[in-house]
Simulated scan of single mutants.
Amino acid sequence: MIEGVELISMESFTIGIMATIKFPPGIKPHSGDLIKLETRVYKITGVVFSVNTPTGFERLQDNIFDCRIEQVLA
């Protein structure tokens, strides 16, 4: 489980929950990873890499990723 992540934004869509998350240095998200956000645990079901713009490159350098997540039942 990955802890110490920082939630930047979260939005619910018909396809699921998309979250912009800053990960600790040296940790890259992968589908299947579990992350702890506040008091809940989520499973990453997809990672979006936005590298087509200068903003996308800057976000990758800051270890910020857009992830599709689903809450894991306790």
Rank of each mutant, 00 (worst) to 15 (best):
Q61T: 03
L37P: 05
S9L: 12
T39L: 09
P29C: 13
G32Q: 03
S12D: 14
I21D: 04
V48W: 02
D33I: 01
L7I: 14
T55V: 13
F23M: 06
I15C: 08
S31C: 05
H30G: 06
M1Y: 02
T45Y: 04
I8P: 00
Q61M: 01
A74W: 01
K36Y: 08
I21P: 06
G46D: 12
T55N: 10
I17V: 11
M18F: 07
R68C: 10
E70F: 00
T20M: 08
K43E: 11
K43S: 11
T55K: 14
G26K: 05
I8M: 06
I44M: 09
I21C: 06
S50K: 15
T45I: 12
F23C: 03
P25Y: 09
I21L: 02
E3T: 14
T53E: 03
D62L: 15
V47A: 10
V41F: 02
T20P: 02
A74R: 02
N52G: 12
A74P: 15
I15K: 04
I27C: 01
N52Y: 02
H30M: 13
F23S: 06
F23N: 00
G26E: 04
I44P: 08
L60W: 01
R68K: 14
V5P: 13
V5I: 15
G16Y: 05
E11S: 14
G32W: 04
T14N: 13
G16K: 00
L34A: 07
I27V: 07
K43P: 00
K43V: 06
I69R: 04
V72E: 07
E11H: 15
D66V: 15
Q71K: 14
T45V: 10
S9P: 05
V47W: 02
I17W: 08
P54F: 03
A74H: 05
L7H: 14
I69A: 03
R68V: 10
D62E: 15
I17H: 03
I8K: 05
A74E: 12
M18T: 08
K43R: 15
N63G: 10
F13T: 12
P54Y: 13
M18N: 06
L34V: 00
R68L: 03
E58N: 14
S31F: 00
L7Q: 14
P24S: 06
M1N: 05
G56Y: 08
P29K: 01
T45S: 02
G56P: 11
T14W: 10
N63A: 09
S31G: 11
T53Y: 01
T14P: 00
I44N: 07
T45A: 02
I35R: 12
F13P: 04
I35K: 10
Q71A: 15
D66K: 15
F23H: 10
E3P: 09
L37S: 00
F13Q: 12
F49V: 08
S12E: 15
G56M: 11
I8F: 01
F49H: 09
T39W: 09
L73I: 09
S50I: 15
V5D: 02
G26R: 01
I15Y: 14
Y42R: 09
I2R: 06
I44K: 03
G46W: 02
F13A: 04
G16F: 09
E6N: 10
P54H: 03
G56R: 00
R59M: 14
T39V: 06
E3A: 09
V5Q: 11
T55W: 13
F23R: 07
I21S: 06
Y42E: 13
I64Y: 09
I27K: 00
